[in-house]
Design a protein around this nucleic acid. Structure first.
Length: 421
RNA sequence: GGAGGAUUCGCAUAGCGGCCGAGUGCGCACGCUUGGAAAGCGUGUAUAGGGCAACCUAUCGAGGGUUCAAAUCCCUCAUCCUCCGCCA
């Protein structure tokens, strides 16, 4: 949620933000009006309430006839207070609803436009020349089959489309990736966390996943809990309703992630690029707002380090305004080169959410006696299936074996994955 | 799933329907004292909204209700603890 005071002072900035995001601009002025009306109602209620408090005390002190007379007044006043309170409640609720519909005020440095309007910030590493090497690269499904590492057919049999088994070397690869990721994160000062993946509505709502993103979230109706699509949710909500100290606080969460992938029927139907369930190590920072931009670049740097360690060619893009989540003011994606698609595909992503999530979740820190909302940022360290895709495809050999990146070898215990009979 | 008990200011606790936004202890901050420290003494110590301010308003797990007035009475829910049952 955005800051109302800032909105009152500079509504134009929010109007502009809504516009470049391709979202409703009119809601800004509706909110301004609703805010004014509700504040008026609050002050009316408070005035009456103050009167009532005084009168009530008088009733308590009075005796006999005098008391009876005061009670008469007090009853009448109580009704007016009740009415004013109800009105206040209604107006506050409607103002809040409008407030929750407004996305975070975009970073003016973010490129303007839609999904296609990203800016490539840099390209790191060079795609391999498979033609020059004299063979046609196989896609990860095929290699996965040869290595007995990925089983999408049985995944579909048991769990439906977009499901898979990681077996043998595939499973070992996950453990190696996760162990490498966590140990790197710990070295960098992150606190490793295994969070709950089943969360209550407050956590889901507070992180902004019940808005436009709601259709991609699994909801268990009987118990009114949600399966998280990312550990960002439980990590952000971890400090809900708290005043935190010793910023920055950095967590590296390892969890399963669940996504309905509604409305993606035609896309990425082959393989494990887009799946309903996967494991991920996510970085999450709580930091002073003035340090958020610098932290965003640090998170990006850690993501780049990981991809470099995986020896995978990739590029970094600055995602355009229309393609940002509601909480993010700016987002950088790292896209790995996928040889069989001849394209860069998103493997990690980092967002600066400034104080947007913290305001909703009521997470603050102290500064000069006052409390202020913290800034929150998140970034993927490794999303396992997509990283496996990138590794298998980029490091494959003609015979279907796959070289293991140097950094992973200590964790995997082998230099190459080779087909077995 | 069943039966009890609990939830108050960072922690531990007190709290009669009006004198309770709330006492006490600990902790913390500042001051006095001291050569310095401890002890002792004193003062302060929740959050949020509104107002230039004095100040006002709200919040005693959450939400409803009764009442002129609710931390206190009633209802619903959540969480925690103990016991029983069941399962890991």
């Amino acid at each position: 949620m955005i800051d109302l005071k800032t909105l009152r002072e500079n509504p134009e900035a929010i109007r502009h933000s809504q516009k470049v995001r391709g979202e409703d601009v009119a809601v800004v002025d509706l909110l301004l009006k609703a805010d004014e009306v509700s504040r008026q109602a609050i002050s009316e209620f408070e005035k009456l309430r103050a009167e009532q408090n005084i009168l009530s005390k008088a009733v308590g002190a009075a005796k006999g006839e005098e008391k009876a007379a005061l009670l008469e007044n007090a009853k009448e006043l109580a009704n007016r207070v009740k009415a004013a309170d109800a009105k206040r409640g209604e107006l506050e609720t409607s103002a809040r609803e409008l407030l929750l519909r407004i996305s975070n005020a975009i970073d003016l440095e973010a490129p303007v436009g839609g999904e296609e309007d990203f800016i490539v910030i840099e390209e790191i590493g060079k795609p391999r020349d498979f033609v020059g090497e004299g063979f046609e690269p196989k896609d990860h499904v095929e290699i996965g089959k040869i290595l007995k590492a990925i089983d999408t057919e049985r995944g579909a049999k048991v769990a439906g489309s977009r499901s898979y088994y990681l077996t043998g070397p595939g499973a070992m690869l996950e453990f190696a990736l996760v162990n490498f990721a966590i140990s790197s994160a710990v070295k960098a000062g992150f606190i490793p966390v295994i969070p709950p993946v089943l969360v209550n509505p407050a956590a889901m709502e507070g992180t902004g996943f019940l808005g436009q993103a709601a259709e991609n979230v699994y909801h268990l109706e009987e118990d009114d809990v949600y399966l998280v699509g990312t550990s960002e949710v439980p990590l952000a909500a971890y400090h809900m309703d708290e005043i935190v100290e010793n910023l920055p606080i950095r967590y590296a969460g390892y969890s399963s992630c669940f996504r309905r992938e509604a409305g993606t029927y035609g896309k990425d139907t082959r393989g494990i690029i887009r799946v309903h369930q996967f494991d991920k190590v996510e970085m999450f920072s709580f930091i002073k707002p003035e340090d958020a931009k610098a932290e965003h670049l640090r998170l990006l740097e850690w993501e780049k380090d990981f991809l470099k360690a995986m020896e995978i060619p990739f590029r970094v893009i600055d995602v355009a305004s229309g393609d940002l989540g509601a909480s993010a003011v700016r987002k950088f994606d790292c896209e790995a080169w996928i040889p069989t698609q001849g394209a860069y595909r998103e493997v990690t992503s980092t967002s600066n959410c400034t104080e947007f999530q913290a305001r909703r979740l009521n997470i603050r820190y102290r500064e000069e006696g006052a409390t202020k909302p913290v800034a929150t940022l998140n970034g993927t360290l490794v999303a396992v299936p997509r990283m496996i895709v990138a590794i298998l495809e980029n490091h494959q050999n003609k015979d279907g074996s796959v070289n293991v990146p140097m950094a992973l070898r200590p964790f995997l215990g082998v230099d190459a994955l080779v087909p077995t009979l």
